[in-house]
Simulated assay, not measured.
Amino acid sequence: MLSNLLKKNAVTIIDGNGISWCEVIQVAAEPLVNNGSIMQLYVNSIIETIVRDGPYMNIGPRVALIYTPFSKYVRQTCISLLKSNVPIALMSQEHMVNLWFVIAFSDAEGRLKLMRAMTMLLTDPNNISQLLLARDVDALLKVTNTVK
């Protein structure tokens, strides 16, 4: 499933120094906006949701699953991944993140399949370790592509 959705051009690695959580979300979502999968309004609504509801998207140590329920701004189910070499605070130092997954769903079936795949990926501590140690996009994709 992830190998069908997470393409090389939607995976980014940055240093992470001097960038805010708002900026990192913009950069992480940029490939999906550029390829037409989501509208910029989707990204704006993500940021508004975090400001309003807090950093609940920080689903575990150093991992954030970034999304919003506003599917009217989604053209197709999609995912992008940004890895920051330096952890970035998602609103506060209590929520330090290196792996920023931006996900969007165009329908219920896409949501179910993508969430199942993300659960399989992110509940395996070995996968998280390998993603955090990855130094290039191909190494990140090697881990994500193991999820069926």
Rank of each mutant, 00 (worst) to 15 (best):
C22A: 07
P31H: 12
I19H: 07
N34C: 02
Q40L: 13
I25N: 06
G18T: 09
W21G: 00
I14K: 13
G18R: 13
E23G: 02
N44Y: 08
L32G: 03
A29D: 05
Q40G: 00
A29H: 11
I19C: 00
P31F: 11
G16V: 10
Y42G: 02
I38F: 08
Y42T: 04
I38A: 01
I14R: 14
P31Y: 13
V33F: 12
V24A: 05
V43A: 04
L41E: 14
M39S: 10
Q40S: 08
I13S: 07
S37Q: 09
N9I: 04
S20Y: 10
P31R: 12
Q40I: 09
V24K: 11
L41I: 02
M39W: 05
Q26D: 12
V33P: 05
W21Y: 10
W21Q: 02
V27K: 15
N17S: 12
I14H: 05
V27P: 00
I38D: 00
A10V: 02
G36C: 10
G18I: 06
I14M: 10
W21H: 04
T12D: 01
V33Y: 11
G16L: 10
A28D: 08
M39K: 15
I19V: 15
C22Y: 09
V27C: 01
W21P: 01
G16Q: 11
E23S: 06
T12I: 15
P31L: 04
E23F: 05
C22S: 08
D15M: 05
G36T: 14
A28T: 09
G18A: 04
C22Q: 13
I38Y: 08
A10M: 08
I25G: 01
E23Q: 14
